[in-house]
Design a binder for these strands. Structure first.
Lengths: 126, 126
DNA sequence: GGCTTGATTCGACATCTGTCAATATCGACA
DNA sequence: TGTCGATATTGACAGATGTCGAATCAAGCC
């Protein structure tokens, strides 16, 4: 599980700058795949938007029509992908997102090279 | 295929601002799932980084150890997800990325709410 | 210690996915 | 028109994935 960036300075090189290496593509794909499920996306969003940036399983599982083992499974997938972390506090287990991981994925998708016009969702460049 | 943003002003609301709706999560998940394969990520990257921002299948398929139908399948998945578009020009078919789609995904992942410490993917392992 | 509640793990199952070989389609060009 | 090269589609199949119920583990409480 090497969520680490490729050694050296090419941190967060966007997709469009140069072809991804196989290793780097594998790491990224593992993270994107974790995001490739509506339940997991909603889980991530619920946790990220929860007060304090963290939430316990009991808080979030109520928002889904799924069994608790299923929620637990999805949380595990997100955690294995390096997108979440968790900690047990007494009876409850709290989860929070790892911002640097999301940030890394976000940066990869910025296709600066590819003449992004400024279309529908023009996140005004900060 | 509604890759469109939800109607109204909530364009590109990041994950952390508020919980994703089911519909919105479904749309996003479809796109992220398409990115959740190393082959497809490399395809996308090869195309995006190719001269002119577009490439024909014959250009890119040589970079893979996969059969031609498999490459074609992955390209179809990326296209169905709204990440690529293509056009036939004589004998060859050219593909290019749709920057606004990548941009949209990138924006969603920006967890402004979640106290991202220091941008550049600094691993900053706590 | 024995319950109760919250969460994970296990085992099973149907479905989805990635891959290939074979075949079909589309354009160019003799 | 027929053939050829470039892509796409089809059909099949092994392996991965999402889901559940049952069992298990962890911590607090009687």
């Amino acid at each position: 599980m090497s969520n680490q960036l490729p050694d050296g300075g090419e941190c967060c090189s966007p997709l469009a700058r140069e072809p991804l290496t196989e290793d780097w593509a594998g790491d990224l794909a593992r993270m994107f795949k974790a995001l490739g499920d509506p339940v997991r996306l909603r889980l991530l969003s619920l946790i990220a938007s929860h007060a304090g940036g963290e939430a316990c399983v009991c808080d979030i599982s109520a928002s889904f029509d799924l069994s608790q083992p299923t929620i637990s499974h999805h949380l595990k997938v997100l955690r294995a992908a390096g997108l979440l972390d968790c900690e047990r506090r007494g009876t409850w287990v709290y989860y929070w997102v790892i911002p640097s991981a999301l940030h890394q994925l976000s940066a990869v998708l910025l296709t600066e090279g590819a003449a992004v016009p400024s279309p529908t969702c023009a996140e005004a460049p900060a």
